[in-house]
Each structure stands twice: as structure tokens, then as C-alpha cells.
Design a protein around this nucleic acid. Structure first.
Lengths: 131, 131
DNA sequence: CTTATAAATGTTATATTATTACATAGTGTT
DNA sequence: AACACTATGTAATAATATAACATTTATAAG
């Protein structure tokens, strides 16, 4: 079993903001939002973000430089992530498909190499934006 | 059939540097390398990069903010990309697996949504770094 | 409980990555 | 020539991220 991570003060503050947000948040937008709570410097935000990513509480959307809370309840480690991104409204959703994650986790390249981690980002138009 | 894109002067200079490099290049490292050729400003580099990505001659490795020449001969459009990245030596290789690209191109999420584009990055240790 | 160690914090400065805004020049039509 | 379109040049600045160092807090070992 995994050890439950108890978040520190800064980590908790920053996680809460990301978790409550309906959309991915950028580091400096987070910073702006927590300045009233005493977090004044970028580094304080980035350190919390790094830790939260490391323990799998949040994920980074690489193509957007933004962070989203993990949707898969109790995802402890960030080693197999997949997202859909609407190119119109920028809505991002974490994909949890057993088939997909099995396929990718077991994927071997031409030389038989298996990978320990992956990140996949799908792009298209969401339901709303297609209508 | 696709129209062959004739690269402009700046685009050609920047593509050549990326194409010759054994590793992904970052925008400012490219800038540094082309200053002798008269390209002086970041924007000149970014504009060429944008265009080259758009026409599929190069790809951006999102997790590294770096650019690599397309390995799939005559890949004209950047809409289905997959890479392996060594977390030790940072070697990046474009994966060309028909199985993988078929699987992902046809992937539908829970709501039946199909996507027009994807980018996948695998992480692990390359052959050399595992020994 | 105290000492040692690791993890987290606070703060300043700076590095790296990317875009806005505006002026100019080339290219290809009609 | 007149038009639209794409690319270029240049300066300034915005947005994203890390280095370096001092201090504090949490955790574990004796």
C-alpha cells in the first residue's frame, strides 16, 4: 500500500485552489490567487506544484503549462496520464480508460523497450464547441 | 496530394539546424546558433518554428520545450506524434508504430468522442542508460 | 528529550521561454 | 497597378521557471 501523503500548509493551499477550479490553472494565476494567504513568491508555488505532481495529486498539462487536479480518485503516482483538450474552449478532461492505459502501459517499441511513464494529450473539439 | 512547402530563407536556416542536430533543440539555443546568419531576434526563430511545426517538418517535445525534426519521411502534418524520452540522457526518438498510431487515431472516449490530433510522450531509460 | 537528518519554507535575484505591437518588404494574383 | 497574403525586421515586454542562500519545521534514531 501507498503511504498517504499529508500535505503541508502551502501544498494544501495550492492543491485546494487547483482542485476547486473547473479549468487547468497556470502557476502565476495560482500565485495571484494565493497572495492573500501569504504565499508571495513564484518559487513557493512551483515547489508545491512539483510535490503535488510527484505524488499524483495534480497533473501538468504540458501543452498548456497548466495544472489540473487528478480526477482518478486516489491516483497516487503520476506515471500514466491521458487528457482530452478542446482547442476551442480549452476545456481539459482526464481520460480514464482501462483499455487505453493497458495498451500504453504494455506498449513496447521496435527494440522491445517498455516505458515506465507516459503522458498523452488528445486534441479536438468538445461536444459544446462542435454544435 | 499535399502541396510541397517551399521553405523561406529563415525557415530553411532553422530547419537545417534542427535537422542536423542529434538532439532536440531549444528556441534560444537555435537563436544563438543562427545569429551569425543574420537572425537576431527570438521572434524570427519562433515564427519559423511555428510554421515548421504547422507543416509537420518538425515537432515540439512539449515536456522539454524543444524541437526535433520529423523522422517519418514526408510527414506533412503534425497531428499524430509519439516520442520516447530517456530521463537520464534526454535522448528523444520519434516512435513510428503503425499499431500505436492506428490505436490512438481510432480511440474514442467514453462519450464516443474522436480526436483530430494527439501527442504522446513515453518516459524511461534508453538502452545505454539502463546498462 | 536531544541530536541528527531530511523536508519544507521564505526571500531575492535572475534565467528561460514566448508574445505584442508596429513598420517594412516580398510574392502571387487579378 | 492594385490587392491580398505571407514573411521579415526590430524593440519592448510578458509569461514561465530556476538558482542560491538563509531559516524553520517535521521525522526519525539514539
Amino acid at each position: 500500500m501507498h503511504k498517504e501523503h499529508t500535505l503541508t500548509k502551502n501544498q494544501q493551499i495550492i492543491f485546494d485552489i487547483i482542485d476547486k477550479s473547473p479549468e487547468p490553472l497556470k502557476a502565476y494565476s495560482i500565485l495571484f490567487n494565493v497572495q492573500k494567504k501569504g504565499i508571495k513568491a513564484p518559487l513557493q508555488v512551483y515547489r508545491a506544484l512539483d510535490k503535488l505532481v510527484e505524488i499524483g495529486k495534480i497533473h501538468k498539462i504540458e501543452s498548456r503549462n497548466a495544472f489540473i487536479a487528478c480526477q482518478n480518485s486516489s491516483c497516487q503516482v503520476a506515471k500514466a496520464t491521458a487528457f482530452s483538450i478542446c482547442e476551442m474552449c480549452e476545456k481539459v478532461t482526464e481520460i480514464s480508460s482501462t483499455g487505453l492505459s493497458k495498451y500504453l502501459t504494455n506498449f513496447k517499441d521496435k527494440e522491445g523497450m517498455k516505458y515506465s511513464k507516459y503522458n498523452l494529450e488528445f486534441f479536438g473539439l468538445c461536444k459544446k464547441c462542435r454544435t
